[in-house]
């Protein structure tokens, strides 16, 4: 479904990605794990067109997307939940969700998805009139995920959904990620520091170090891999 081939991305003169290649098949949950500054977020930013790769190829459903502007990539069905959530702070929860459906025109479908999102996160329905900035961190993460779902994406990119959240809420969020994948058949590409949680729900995992993919395996195998255990799982 999504394929990255030798992607090199830069911030100014600093090279963040040094030839990243990975493949994501339809219906999978894939995690990308790595340390701070390894290039996890840059990989996501490159996929959704906010950081343009300087060389390499990114194809989505057979179509090359690395030269497209960010908004057109969203049109193709790739939605991103940015790191740090980036919800619209002064808009209400409901308006935030409407913004997620910005590109859609099918009113019935939007209504149905809104109900679905509210069924996933009942707290959001309760808070639908409140300004997004007034929500707690966990609620904001739920809102950011819901907003991305409102675009009805084929591929959902999640950047550190567990960042700054309490362990109980993290478990809840990861359960719902799995649920979305099953119920909506949405392919999920997960970037995480919290390797343990991420690998538990994933089909496969990639390990990124210094801008290069160093290891890829089934998630279960990765969790057993001694090097990974030592570096990322803290076992």
């Amino acid at each position: 479904m999504l394929e990255l081939q030798h992607v090199h991305s830069f911030y100014g003169n600093i090279q963040a990605l040094k030839g990243v290649s990975l493949t994501i098949n339809e219906g999978e949950i894939i995690s990308l794990i790595g340390a701070n500054g390894a290039g996890k977020s840059t990989t996501l930013m490159s996929v959704c067109g906010i950081v343009k790769p300087r060389s390499g190829k990114i194809t989505f459903q057979g179509q090359s997307v690395h030269h497209l502007p960010a908004d057109q990539i969203v049109t193709l069905g790739i939605s991103q939940v940015p790191e740090g959530r980036h919800i619209f702070p002064h808009l209400s929860v409901r308006e935030n969700l409407d913004m997620g459906a910005f590109l859609r025109t099918d009113k019935d479908g939007i209504k149905r998805d809104l109900d679905y999102v509210f069924s996933l996160f009942p707290i959001l329905e309760e808070r639908s009139g409140q300004a997004g900035g007034n929500l707690s961190g966990g609620e904001q993460q739920m809102l950011a995920m819901s907003r991305a779902l409102m675009a009805r994406p084929k591929l959902l990119l999640l950047d550190e959904p567990s960042m700054g959240l309490a362990p109980l809420i993290i478990t809840q969020i990861f359960d719902i990620i799995k649920k979305i994948n099953k119920e909506q058949n949405t392919t999920i590409f997960l970037v995480e520091q919290n390797a343990n949680q991420a690998l538990q729900i994933s089909d496969r995992g990639y390990v990124i170090e210094n801008g290069k993919i160093t290891l890829t395996q089934n998630a279960a195998d990765l969790m057993q891999n001694p090097a990974v255990q030592k570096a990322y799982l803290g076992i």
Partner: peptide, 25 residues
């Protein structure tokens, strides 16, 4: 209008605005 909503999104958060599929330019 739609355009008005895009403007508001732009005012609130530029990265999120792009992630919503709004043409920033």
């Amino acid at each position: 209008s739609r355009l008005g909503r895009a403007w508001i999104a732009l005012r609130e958060d530029e990265i999120a605005c792009q992630a919503m599929g709004i043409d920033k330019t």
